[in-house]
């Protein structure tokens, strides 16, 4: 009896220990996912009690809506403008901080600070910096004789402003993840490379990057997933909470997919059915992009 119990214990216990996560995931992750798919097949307004089954009509309407494609374009554009510079910056920061430095902990903590600050605070402050009339950035530009920019009005300028907020928030955090991986790279590699006369940049490219490949893949994937869901930054960038905050500017120049979802779910008669179908398409878009990026990054040489 004892040995039997012991056997059961060793075999079953690990599953029991991880079960809570999967149970919670099923309740708060899987179930909403499937329920959203179910809701997306209905004409489902939050304010009404009857919900009519309409099949794939919501999806059809969405694909015909030019504003949806516009939101997809904006999302991908902001993803590219934020993620690529951010990862390069993170690598560089990690590389710099990986050397012998005084006050190591201070620098590392400092890099984490922007990430600890609430998204809302960051977005509010940056929106003021990028302000059209009284923003610090425009003030500086004007004094340099470069003229003012109406950051919110343009497509590219608004995307740059939003990307800056994202970079500010995540560059340091990702740098710390890179740093952790870099510290596991054997020092001898660098020593012999230095003896062979490799420059700092060559060392970064030939030794560091290949050695931390799995970490880079991880960071790229996570950044892609978060980047495609960006919401608070464009919403608060428009400010005011009125129409522009829903549509991402008067011409929808910085309306991301989540903002598009929000516009339909939380105004316009609260079309939760439609918003759910947007959520599902977003999910698929994220899967596709994560896959593409995975294939791209995997090509880094071992």
């Amino acid at each position: 009896m004892r040995t039997w119990l012991y056997k059961v214990d060793t075999r079953v216990s690990p599953y029991l220990y991880i079960a809570p996560f999967f149970l919670l995931f099923a309740v708060f992750g899987l179930w909403p996912l499937f329920y959203t798919a179910y809701v997306s097949l209905f004409d489902w307004s939050l304010l009404k009690d009857e919900h009519t089954f309409i099949g794939l009509q919501n999806y059809g309407e969405m694909f015909q809506d030019s504003y949806f494609w516009n939101a997809l374009f904006n999302t991908v554009s902001i993803l590219a403008l934020s993620t690529i510079p951010q990862l390069l910056l993170s690598l560089l920061l990690a590389h710099l901080i990986n050397r012998r430095l005084r006050l190591k902990t201070f620098w590392r903590l400092g890099m984490l600070l922007p990430n600890v600050t609430s998204v809302v605070a960051v977005a509010v402050i940056f929106s003021q910096l990028f302000g059209r009339d009284f923003g610090l950035i425009n003030w500086t530009l004007e004094h340099l004789g470069l003229g003012r920019v109406d950051w919110q009005a343009g497509v590219l300028s608004s995307h740059i402003a939003i990307s800056t907020m994202i970079i500010w928030q995540w560059a340091g955090y990702n740098a710390l993840i890179f740093l952790a991986a870099m510290q596991a790279v054997p020092k001898e590699l660098y020593e012999s490379a230095t003896l062979d006369g490799a420059t700092e940049f060559q060392q970064l490219r030939q030794i560091t990057i290949p050695s931390i490949r799995p970490t880079i893949i991880f960071v790229v994937m996570v950044s892609t997933i978060f980047g495609l869901q960006v919401f608070a930054q464009p919403q608060l960038f428009a400010g005011g909470g009125g129409g522009a905050a829903l549509t991402g500017g008067s011409d929808r120049q910085f309306q991301t997919l989540t903002l598009y979802l929000y516009e339909h779910g939380f105004s316009r008669g609260f079309e939760f059915g439609y918003a759910s179908s947007v959520a599902w398409v977003m999910f698929l878009v994220i899967v596709v992009f994560a896959f593409i990026n995975y294939r791209l990054v995997r090509r880094i040489k071992k």
Binding site: D150, A153, G242, G243, A244, G249, S250, D251, S267, R268
Partner: peptide, 23 residues
């Protein structure tokens, strides 16, 4: 009407596009 606010948002967006010289 039921979507009063949304209608004004749509029109406000149009005025915004003129103000910003986009249309």
């Amino acid at each position: 009407g039921p979507k009063q606010g949304d209608v004004f948002n749509a029109i406000g967006g149009g005025l915004g596009r003129i103000e910003q010289g986009k249309q």
